[in-house]
Write a protein that binds this DNA or RNA. Structure first.
Length: 262
DNA sequence: ATGGTAGTAAAACTA
């Protein structure tokens, strides 16, 4: 039996958050860390700093916005960027890696959707359906597969601090619940909920614009780690790590960690 | 109440 740790973290700029991320990695020592909103072009990604810490970096970004990366201890045996269905691939929103131990990781930064009546919201819904097609084409549900990232969906009323007031938001309304569920129902288990069923008040995102949001508990659970059934059975713990929220300049998101015995 | 802050990048645009 081997301990295997995966984490997901929307860092909101990897260059700004680099010291915080490196310090956090020293504590948690994840085998794989999936990053979103790195907001940096590939040639400016701080690869050397992660290599100094003993990690490889797979990244895709163009600077400014979006950007994803997978930071990992072992060189992956397979890497793919973006959706490969012939539409806009969005390479700065999806990375797939296959690890030497046979586990696949798909790291996604799902489009946020801006407003319900916008073209970006329609794009978000379509993105989930394209992602379902991606999983259907590339995988079987009996494989060891992790899907993690910033999904921009709070799947249940217990995943937001005020479900009545927030109902209708692009991350909390029936169309996104259904779109997310269509992907999930292909064969994924929400690992945080596996260990904390029906528990409200666990959040991964706090809007910078809401005064004292963290202190007041005004959060959302929109960052997730899911796994196919056979791998979910090997998961022994999954938690939201609130420590990085206490930093001087925290990201508006916090990491989620899952531990497997494989 | 339609604001608020943070990030990129050099004026808005995104979240």
């Amino acid at each position: 039996m081997e301990r295997f740790t995966v984490a997901t973290y929307n860092v909101n700029s990897i260059r700004t958050r680099l010291p915080l991320v490196l310090e956090w990695m020293e504590k948690v020592k994840p085998d794989v860390l999936c990053l979103q909103e790195t907001k940096v072009a590939d040639d400016k990604f701080p690869v050397g700093e992660f290599e100094m810490a003993g990690y490889k970096v797979i990244c895709r970004g163009h600077g400014g916005r979006n950007g994803v990366a997978v930071v990992l201890k072992e060189e992956p045996v397979e890497v793919q960027f973006g959706l490969d269905d012939g539409e806009e691939p969005d390479e700065d929103r999806l990375i797939k890696v296959k690890l030497p131990n046979g586990i696949y990781i798909v790291n996604t930064y799902v489009p946020q959707g801006r407003s319900p009546d916008s073209e970006m919201f329609a794009y978000k819904l379509r993105w989930f359906d394209r992602l379902k097609g991606y999983f259907e084409r590339h995988f079987d549900r009996d494989q060891w597969l992790v899907w993690c990232g910033d999904m921009n969906v709070a799947p249940e009323p217990i995943d937001v601090h005020n479900p009545k007031r927030l109902l209708g938001h692009v991350c909390f309304r029936p169309e996104v619940w259904e779109a997310f569920e269509r992907v999930k129902s292909w064969g994924f288990v929400d690992l945080f909920r596996k260990f904390h069923p029906d528990e409200p008040g666990h959040y991964t995102f706090f809007d910078y614009r809401v005064p004292k949001a963290v202190e007041r508990g005004l959060g959302w659970r929109v960052d997730h780690i899911l796994a196919t059934e056979p791998l979910a059975q090997r998961c022994v713990d999954c938690w939201i790590d609130i420590e990085p929220r206490k930093a001087k300049r925290p990201s508006d998101h916090t990491p989620v960690v899952a531990v497997f015995e494989i």
